[in-house]
């Protein structure tokens, strides 16, 4: 049985904006990231860190909350960790991950703080975004560098920039070709490591059609979810990533005939004239697990 936390949508909230932080949980995103990196000016790093600390410490949120720190090679990265870990975010999101060593470094710091603060060991997780070819080449190493790793994500704009190209919009056929290989490789690494893959943000808030196309495409590629910066995109992303009632119905029937075949010890299984084999059974299990996690399927078993 696949028991994974649902992360269809991962929404950023700018760390120095109290209005955004305190309301970030109410829009229904599966996961929210309080950002003290790119959305915070260099002169406000200290105030954002303080504000995020107090938000984590004093407010309650209906979803998991991660914190995107500055990279540990910047003057702020280690201080971000030291200051924010005691407020116990659900996970640390590292931007521009390039090696397993970075992850092991952060893992060590988290372990220390967990011990010092009396948190359950291993309870603070890590998510890493891949923004460069080097990071992508090391994606599997990064994904397996710590048992805290829950997901790797692609930072689309940064990745395209590091390729000396740009993130295109195009249409459903031509859109996103520059990231096609990178996205797929990221999914391969995530699947080999047994963790989740999260796609990057789509920044044109008015263009819902291309957003739907892009989410549909990354879902086909195998991604578990997509990042966003605006609550308006959450519903659209969820609609694409949540199984439809037809999909749920079919998955349910696949598993029913599979279990009947197991009980009757019959080797060959067919449903509606189509042969059912193991990959289809696994896919059906995944569909129902997703539907269950999304709260739209309640039958146990299967």
């Amino acid at each position: 049985m696949i028991k994974e936390r649902l992360r269809r949508s991962v929404m950023y909230a700018a760390g120095n904006n109290p209005g955004l932080l305190q309301n970030a949980g109410i829009y229904g995103a599966d996961s929210v990231i309080f950002d003290v990196e790119d959305s915070v000016a260099v002169t406000e790093k200290d105030s954002a860190r303080e504000l995020v600390y107090h938000a984590l410490k004093h407010l309650q949120f209906p979803c998991e909350i991660g914190v995107r720190i500055n990279h540990i090679s910047t003057p702020w990265g280690y201080d971000d960790l030291e200051y924010l870990l005691p407020a116990k975010p659900d996970y640390i999101r590292l931007p521009k991950g390039e090696s397993g060593d970075e992850i092991r470094d952060i893992d060590k710091m988290i372990t220390k703080v967990e011990e010092k603060c009396g948190f359950e060991p291993g309870s603070i997780k890590i998510m890493v975004s891949i923004e460069t070819p080097k990071g992508l080449r090391n994606a599997y190493e990064i994904a397996t560098a710590s048992p805290r790793m829950i997901a790797i994500a692609i930072g689309g704009e940064d990745f395209a920039a590091s390729l000396k190209t740009e993130k295109t919009k195009g249409n459903s056929i031509t859109g996103g070709r520059e990231l096609f290989v990178a996205r797929s490789m990221l999914v391969f690494a995530a699947r080999e490591a047994g963790i989740q893959a999260i796609d990057s943000v789509f920044s044109d808030l008015r263009d819902e059609e291309t957003l739907i196309n892009e989410v549909t495409m990354v879902k086909e590629l195998g991604f578990d979810g997509k990042s966003c910066v605006n609550p308006r995109q959450i519903d659209i992303i969820h609609r694409v990533f949540t199984p439809s009632s037809q999909e749920i119905d079919y998955a349910h029937r696949v598993l029913t005939v599979y279990q009947e075949a197991l009980a009757n010890k019959s080797g060959v299984i067919a449903l509606d004239g189509k042969m059912i084999d193991m990959p289809m059974v696994i896919r059906a299990e995944r569909v129902l697990a997703n539907a269950r996690a999304a709260g739209i399927y309640h039958k146990e078993g299967n």
């Binding site: 109290p18 305190q22 105030s47 860190r49 303080e50 504000l51 107090h54 004093h58 201080d79």
Partner: peptide, 21 residues
């Protein structure tokens, strides 16, 4: 309240000559 506390603490650190980083 969490914002008021955070802003006062940041102002203190800045007035004390630390930038916090």
């Amino acid at each position: 309240d969490y914002t008021i506390k955070a802003r006062v603490k940041t102002a203190i650190r800045r007035a004390a000559g630390q930038r916090g980083f």
